[in-house]
Simulated scan of single mutants.
Amino acid sequence: MKEVFEKAILTYGQTAQEDVAIEEMSELIKAICKMRRAGVNEKPAAMDAIVDEIADVSIMMEQLCMMYECFDAVENRRQYKVRRLANRLKEAPACSK
């Protein structure tokens, strides 16, 4: 996969790939909004759209990490934020859906 992502960055350029990342994140937001409004019969298609958009966003996030050379920094920050969330959850009351 790394080779494909590197080729995409070299072929289309960093600015274009940043724009694609922004577009894909926007499409994920839109898919989540549609899922929240979906009726029972619309849920399967809405879920398929969410899966597609999460895949697209994850591909673009990897390319962003490559372009900014920040894999380790992102992973360290991610671990910090997960620990912080775990600590907050210890103190938080459960909410109902």
Score class of each variant (00 low, 15 high):
Lys2Trp: 09
Val82Glu: 14
Arg83Ser: 07
Lys34Asn: 13
Ala94Tyr: 02
Ile54His: 03
Met67Trp: 05
Met35Val: 08
Ala55Ser: 15
Val4Asp: 11
Ile54Trp: 03
Tyr80His: 13
Gly39Ile: 04
Asp72Val: 02
Lys81His: 05
Tyr80Phe: 10
Ala94Met: 06
Asp19Asn: 15
Gln63Cys: 04
Lys2Val: 05
Tyr12Lys: 06
Ala73Pro: 01
Met1Phe: 03
Glu6Asp: 12
Ala21Arg: 00
Ala46Cys: 13
Cys95Gly: 12
Arg37Asp: 13
Gln17Cys: 02
Glu91Val: 00
Pro44Lys: 07
Ile59Asp: 10
Val74His: 08
Ala16Glu: 15
Ala92Phe: 09
Arg77Asp: 13
Gln79Asn: 10
Glu23Leu: 09
Met47Asn: 14
Gly13Thr: 06
Lys7Phe: 06
Ala55His: 15
Lys97Arg: 14
Ala86Asn: 07
Ser96Lys: 14
Ala8Gln: 14
Ala73Phe: 00
Met66Glu: 03
Glu18Ala: 05
Leu89Arg: 14
Glu53Leu: 00
Glu75Phe: 01
Met25His: 05
Glu23Val: 05
Val4Gln: 13
Leu10Gly: 08
Val40Cys: 15
Arg83Cys: 08
Glu23Ser: 07
Tyr68Leu: 11
Gly13His: 08
Glu42Val: 09
Cys33Leu: 08
Lys30Val: 06
Phe71Lys: 12
Glu18Ser: 03
Ala8Pro: 02
Lys81Glu: 14
Asp72Tyr: 07
Ala31His: 03
Arg36Thr: 08
Met1Gln: 10
Lys30Gly: 05
Glu62Gly: 01
Ser58Pro: 05
Glu69Asn: 11
Met66Gln: 10
Gln63Thr: 00
Ala86Thr: 02
Glu42Met: 10
Phe5Glu: 09
Asn87Pro: 03
Ala49Pro: 01
Tyr80Arg: 08
Lys34Ala: 12
Ser26Ile: 00
Met66Asp: 02
Ala16Pro: 09
Phe5Lys: 02
Val74Thr: 07
Ala86Leu: 01
Arg78Thr: 07
Glu24Gln: 14
Arg84Asp: 15
Met47Ile: 14
Leu64Phe: 05
Ala92Pro: 09
Val57Gly: 06
Glu6Trp: 06
Ala21Lys: 02
Ser58Asp: 15
Val82Pro: 01
Ile22Thr: 10
Met25Val: 07
Met66Val: 01
Asn87Ile: 02
Ile32Cys: 11
Arg84Lys: 14
Ser58Ala: 15
Asp19Phe: 11
Lys97Val: 12
Gly13Tyr: 05
Ala92Cys: 11
Asp19Met: 14
Ile32Asn: 05
Arg83Tyr: 10
